[in-house]
Amino acid sequence: MQEALLEVKQLKKHFPIEGGVLKQQVGTVKAVDGVTFTLHKGETFGLVGESGCGKSTTGRMLMRLLEPSEGEVLFNGREMTSLSKNEMRHLRKDIQMVFQDPFASLNPRHTVEKIIEEPLIVHNLGNKAERKKRVKELLEIVGLSSYHAKRYPHQFSGGQRQRIGIARALAVNPKLIIADEPVSALDVSIQAQVLNLLEDLQKELGLTYLFIAHDLGVVRHISDRVGVMYLGRIVEMADSEKLYLDSKHPYTQALLSAVPVPDPEYGKDRIILTGDVPSPSNPPSGCPFHTRCPKAMDVCSSVVPEFREVEPGHYTACHLYEEDHV
């Protein structure tokens, strides 16, 4: 039995919609609406879905950059959502984040040395000489040179800037790294280099990753398990290979049918979803996917499907796999 590092239970984030002269609440955006999963030590858990499904919001709540509306987050058995700011600051030494945009997440007025050194200063790690040495070590670890330390972010390419972001995250020896679409802003060839770097660092340093992305090809390459999100909820979760070879939920099947295959001779049935993604401020009743689902039944429009295990280690929220319909 693998040891759980992070446990997320019924996590929700609802944003109020204000209107009128008095700015009264007139509605709610359910950005994340009951996400539950467990992340084991040393594994990579991929969280995927369309833009706006709530995956980045989930990652930011785990860092407490956004405060959850409801739910529990346990890190090494310790409940995080009730911690004070000071307690959370100490815990962030073990949980670091790599952001999507490597330019926006780096201070343009600071040198690379100062950017990477800052977490060491915040957590009071080492004296000045030790911190300078650590910065040079980190630059070498992520594939840059120590002479890059005196340069500024604008003097680097996108891939190099993301390596700097990874070095900053590694500075305090974290146990968990939340990578929020870390390669989506990079060229394909650079994406492969950064993914390989993350895999090498995981093996060398024993890291655990929550890898957030919308590119299913990237997620398959790096993830041990995958959770598929739709409209603020996880609708399917399984081992990476099992999910890609035998997906259960119609939404996952539609996403996988859209993944390009590098073989012009290979014919592939494309599942075209009709309609637009419903608004999280006014989600449909019953199954949130039923308005676009090619396999929708009468029960789907009125009853929310239970997220349940349909095969060992394979979970889905779909009425097709309930005993009445199997």
Rank of each mutant, 00 (worst) to 15 (best):
I234H: 01
R292V: 09
R270C: 02
L210Q: 04
E204Y: 01
P305N: 13
I272R: 12
G275V: 13
P182V: 11
S302D: 11
G286P: 13
S184R: 02
F289K: 04
V261L: 06
G286T: 09
R270N: 03
L195R: 08
F307D: 11
A296N: 01
T274P: 00
V259Q: 02
D246N: 15
C300V: 04
K295N: 06
Y266H: 08
T274W: 03
F289C: 02
S247M: 03
G286V: 12
K295Y: 12
V261R: 09
L205R: 13
K295H: 14
P280I: 11
V218A: 05
S301F: 01
Q253P: 03
D269T: 10
E311F: 02
D298V: 12
V259Y: 02
D200K: 15
A258H: 03
V194N: 07
C287S: 12
F211H: 10
I272F: 12
E311T: 05
Q253E: 15
R220Y: 15
G232R: 06
L210T: 08
S223D: 06
R308D: 02
R292S: 12
Q193R: 14
V277T: 15
H290E: 11
I271E: 01
P250E: 04
Y230K: 08
R220F: 06
V277A: 14
S279E: 08
S240V: 14
M229D: 08
D239R: 10
A213R: 09
L245Y: 03
E309V: 12
C287K: 12
D276Q: 14
Q202W: 02
D239L: 10
T291Y: 07
G232P: 04
T291D: 03
G217P: 07
Y230H: 06
S240P: 00
A185M: 14
D215R: 02
N196C: 13
V261P: 00
Y251W: 06
V194C: 11
V261C: 02
V228S: 01
Q253I: 10
G227Y: 10
S257T: 08
L243G: 13
A296D: 00
S257F: 07
H314K: 10
L256P: 10
Q253R: 15
Y266L: 14
Y266N: 00
E236G: 11
P280W: 13
S184K: 00
G232N: 05
M237L: 15
D239H: 13
A185N: 12
N282M: 10
P262V: 03
V183E: 10
D200V: 05
S189K: 03
L205I: 04
S184T: 04
S301A: 15
I272H: 07
Y266G: 00
L273P: 06
S240A: 15
T291E: 06
C300S: 13
V228D: 05
M229G: 10
G313Y: 03
G267L: 09
Q253S: 08
E309N: 06
H249G: 11
Q193K: 10
V310Y: 07
I222D: 11
V218I: 14
G217L: 02
H214D: 06
C300G: 13
L207Y: 04
D298L: 11
A258P: 06
D224G: 00
L197T: 13
L245T: 15
E306D: 14
L245M: 04
P312V: 11
V218G: 07
A238Y: 06
S302M: 09
L255D: 01
C293E: 02
L255P: 03
C300W: 07
V194Q: 07
L256I: 01
V219E: 07
K295E: 14
T208R: 09
S302I: 13
L256A: 06
Q191P: 04
V218Y: 01
S279N: 15
